[in-house]
């Protein structure tokens, strides 16, 4: 696959919205998510000739988004900043309850360590398998399992009854 601008444009048109949404869940800020996707797509464009199969482009971009997001959050943490993110405005009446829960989720995600947050988004928003998630993060499947379990436990602790994760609990009562 050459660095075919038309094919790349087609890929961006088809997938950028989905990639931006996933990036937003990872970083909790719309502007930051857009920067993240733009940076990841630049890397994808550079790597386009060696990606061979266009289907690889999405996996490559997702990996770039994830690893860059983790790096950004580690830098913030190490600089003493808290990743609060810009979450949806609270509303009154109408969809207030729904917005409150969304607000709670974004706040809870922001409190997870970066890798746990990435694992939760990849597994339960992107619907990646444990193996696919491990490939994105460059770790073993066992690490994905342990990070998933720890992340879900923290989310449950932070959100309480607002979040139903019973479907993610195995028959042995262990978190997914």
């Amino acid at each position: 696959m050459a660095r075919d601008r038309a094919a790349f444009a087609e890929f961006v048109a088809a997938r950028s919205s989905a990639l931006q949404r996933a990036a937003y869940l990872m970083v909790g800020d719309v502007g930051l998510a857009q920067d993240l996707v733009q940076e990841a797509l630049t890397k994808t464009y550079v790597a386009w000739p060696r990606l061979r199969d266009p289907a690889n482009a999405e996996a490559y971009t997702r990996k770039a988004i994830t690893t860059t997001a983790i790096t950004w959050f580690r830098k913030r943490s190490w600089n003493g900043e808290r990743a609060t993110g810009a979450v949806p405005d609270r509303a009154t009446g109408g969809h207030a309850d729904a917005l409150d829960v969304r607000h709670s989720l974004m706040q809870a995600l922001a409190q997870l360590p970066p890798r746990q947050r990435a694992v939760i988004v990849l597994r339960f928003y992107e619907d990646l398998t444990e193996r696919q998630t491990a490939e994105v993060l460059g770790c073993a499947v066992g690490t994905v399992k342990s990070q998933t379990s720890a992340g879900l436990t923290k989310l449950r602790d932070l959100m309480g009854d607002e979040l139903d994760i019973h479907d993610l609990v195995t028959s042995e009562g262990v978190l997914a």
Partner: peptide
């Protein structure tokens, strides 16, 4: 209000 994680995300 209880919601599934996937729906919420």
């Amino acid at each position: 209000m209880t919601e599934k994680l996937k729906t919420l995300m």
